[in-house]
Computed example of a mutant assay.
Amino acid sequence: MSALELPVEKNKTSRKTSVFIVDDSLVYRNLLRNTFSQDGEIEFLGAAIDGKFALPKIAQLKPDFVILDVEMPQMNGIQTLEEIKSKFPDTKVIMLSSLTQEGAKITLKALDMGAIDFVPKPNGGQEGALSETLELLTSKIKALSPIKPIIQSPAEKKNIPVNIVQTRREKDCSICAIGISTGGPIALRQLFQKLPSDLSGSIVIAQHMPPLFTNYLAESLSQAANILIKEAEDGEVLRKGVAYIAPGGKQLEIINGNSGPSARVFNGPEEELCKPSVNILFRSLAENFPKETTAIIMTGMGEDGYLGMKELKKNGAYLIAQNRESCTVFGMPNRPVQEGLVDEVLDVDHIAEKISNLLQRNSL
């Protein structure tokens, strides 16, 4: 019996996470097949060269995940995604995207249409970059797997009580800093749609994304928001009512410039394998504007942001974490919540409400 004919037992929590691949590249189909077949937690169900051949197999096999290429003949990634989300809404889709302007645009459209995440295909097929892509994709599948049990700690069951520090923070806050990764574009869209146009402070964001993608993310979010959202530029002074996204492949710090809080965009090393890094952004605010900052750690894999939050907490900033239920992956908020660093644990809608309250009553 071939892998495509194996029955999928959806009710067994001990089973492997099942994956189906849709990619017109034989090289990638073979690479992914070999990678998944050797992993003890992933079940490789099969592959197809495009959506036309994939959809009947997806209907038959009901995989947990479809790994979907963006550019394919006959039926491309966007067309295939639309069919998958319409006919198989419980199937999670991760896009494989080329590192090009067009690839970035299409990938962000796919996220708006319901793809849960994406992994960039490296240009040129370098062995090291391919290994990183395969490792990243495997880790995302495991982190996003629907069959893992969710264990909620006592600290997550309700919002951490507000204390006297919050009164001071609400009076003084003029910068909201957000650290976010997997699931970020969807969460940020939900958040910005709820923010008013009359914010009198600034928002700065470190979203884990490669070059090109963050610019199109800013453009996409701006179209759905009431405020301007843009990529941060080196040397620019933060303006009231504007949100700044750290450019992909760069690091962002907020420094005390001659005219006030200003962006420093630079080619620094990765931290926590991230560039941009939430830690680097948060640490700059802890050093320069701790008492003016509210920092928010949101959905994402790994622990980027934890060390920066420790510095912010030590220096008097107000800290918020997104709650588990509204996170795509409760990775980045997990440790700050478990260690009691944060002052509040909120869902996305209440985070938007908090930002609105903070930045409508104050000014830089």
Rank of each mutant, 00 (worst) to 15 (best):
A317E: 02
E303F: 06
Y318W: 14
I296H: 07
L312M: 04
M309I: 03
L312G: 05
M298Y: 10
T294L: 15
A295Q: 00
N288W: 09
N288I: 04
P290E: 14
I297N: 03
M301P: 07
N315F: 11
L307V: 07
P290D: 12
I320R: 13
G300I: 14
G316M: 02
T293K: 01
L319M: 10
V329C: 02
L319P: 08
D304M: 11
I297R: 04
A317S: 15
S326G: 07
K310M: 14
G305I: 04
M309Y: 00
E287A: 09
L312Q: 00
V329Q: 14
A317W: 14
P290K: 08
D304I: 06
E292K: 15
G308R: 09
N315M: 14
E292I: 00
V329Y: 15
V329F: 15
K313P: 00
K313W: 14
I297L: 02
G331Q: 11
E303C: 09
C327R: 08
G308N: 11
I296F: 13
K310F: 10
N323W: 07
E287D: 09
E303P: 00
K314E: 01
P290M: 12
G302I: 00
T299V: 06
K314Q: 03
T328L: 04
G300S: 01
T293H: 14
E303H: 11
Q322I: 12
V329N: 12
T299P: 15
E287G: 04
L312F: 03
K291A: 04
C327Q: 02
M309A: 01
A321Y: 13
K310R: 15
G308C: 13
G305A: 00
M301G: 02
L312W: 03
S326M: 04
K291D: 05
A321N: 10
G300E: 12
L319T: 13
M298K: 11
E303I: 15
R324N: 11
Y318Q: 01
R324I: 03
N323G: 06
T294S: 09
K314R: 14
V329H: 14
L312V: 08
K310I: 13
L312Y: 02
G305Q: 06
D304E: 05
Y306G: 05
Y306D: 04
G316W: 07
I320W: 13
M309T: 07
N323V: 06
R324F: 12
I320Y: 13
E292G: 02
A317Q: 09
T299G: 13
G308W: 05
I297D: 02
P290I: 00
T294D: 02
R324L: 12
M301F: 12
F330E: 00
G305C: 03
L312P: 02
S326H: 06
Y318D: 11
F330P: 01
E325W: 01
G300Y: 11
P290V: 05
Q322S: 05
G308D: 07
N323M: 04
E292N: 15
I296C: 12
V329E: 14
L319E: 03
V329L: 11
N315Y: 11
N315T: 15
